[in-house]
């Protein structure tokens, strides 16, 4: 079973986000970049399926050279090879542009399953997976908590989180799955894994290598334009509820919620 995992590198979730002076980007100095948390579940699931069915796990990343670090992390976890599309013309791509790049990489590959994180924790779009599935003409199952591939490797059954419950969805392979937290517990890269990862193949491609035109991707091809980035409205600390005992504090809080905020 050949599995492709699409990977993004994002600021660690601990990061304080500051708006840059151009008001169209964020300050990236001193940011710790990590593999997108949801992509870790995708990588782990790919590795578990490979352990069961054999085959290869290929990691595909888009974007600047530093993304190599996250691809190497996935290789250290046990993936077999990596592909990075790195080209200055990619800057400013929107989700659909990124999906076009991934589709161009994938069209020449032999695969049974594509795994993505359910969303990047940076721009929070959560659509590259469904954009990509559409461009490739394969079924998608998003926000997956549990995945079972049939013994013969022809179909997949996925538990999908929805409001107030779970849907169990079946699709034939090849298909694209997006991973939700809870799908598995991602492994840490072992020291021998890290050593081995250094020797695993990592291809770097440009958009010309993929036969794409620069006007289709990057800022010039983007159909969504960022006009402005703003900080959230400052939320000020309110009042500390007075009272000598927990009962008094509780009574005063209820009074505030009932009479001032009018929420209960």
């Amino acid at each position: 079973m050949n599995i492709l995992v699409c990977l993004k590198q994002v600021p660690d979730t601990e990061t304080q986000i500051k708006v840059a002076p151009d008001s169209k980007s964020i300050v990236t100095d001193n940011i710790k970049w990590v593999m997108n948390p949801y992509d870790e579940y995708a990588v782990e699931e790919g590795l578990r399926l490979k352990e069961k069915f054999g085959g290869e796990v290929t990691i595909i990343g888009v974007g600047p050279t530093k993304v190599t670090e996250s691809i190497r992390t996935a290789l250290a976890m046990g993936a077999d090879k990596g592909i990075l599309v790195d080209d200055p013309a990619l800057t400013g791509s929107d989700s659909l542009g990124t999906a076009k790049i991934l589709a161009a990489v994938i069209k020449d590959l032999d695969y049974n399953l594509i795994l993505c994180g359910k969303q990047g924790v940076d721009d929070d779009y959560g659509v590259v997976g469904s954009n990509l599935a559409e461009l490739l003409g394969i079924p998608q199952i998003s926000i997956v908590l549990k995945l079972e591939v049939s013994e013969d490797g022809s179909t997949v059954k996925a538990h999908r989180e929805v409001e107030g419950g779970t849907l169990v969805i079946e699709a034939s392979l090849p298909a694209l799955i997006t991973a939700q937290k809870g799908l598995n517990e991602p492994r840490y890269a072992s020291l021998p894994g890290i050593m081995k990862a250094k020797k695993k193949p990592l291809d770097v491609k440009t958009i010309a290598d993929l036969g794409l035109d620069a006007s289709e991707v990057g800022e010039s091809g983007a159909k969504i334009k960022i006009m402005q980035i703003t900080p959230p409205e400052e939320r000020l600390a309110g009042k500390i509820v007075e009272g000598e005992t927990p009962q008094e504090k509780a009574a005063n809080l209820v009074k505030l919620l009932h009479e001032e905020a009018k929420v209960i």
Partner: peptide, 21 residues
């Protein structure tokens, strides 16, 4: 359409517009 949407889970907001859509 001009749309405002949270990014980084609400640590910032992006105002976006559409092109060729």
């Amino acid at each position: 359409l001009v749309a405002k949407r949270p990014i980084y889970a609400g640590k910032a907001y992006a105002t976006v517009t559409f092109k060729d859509s």
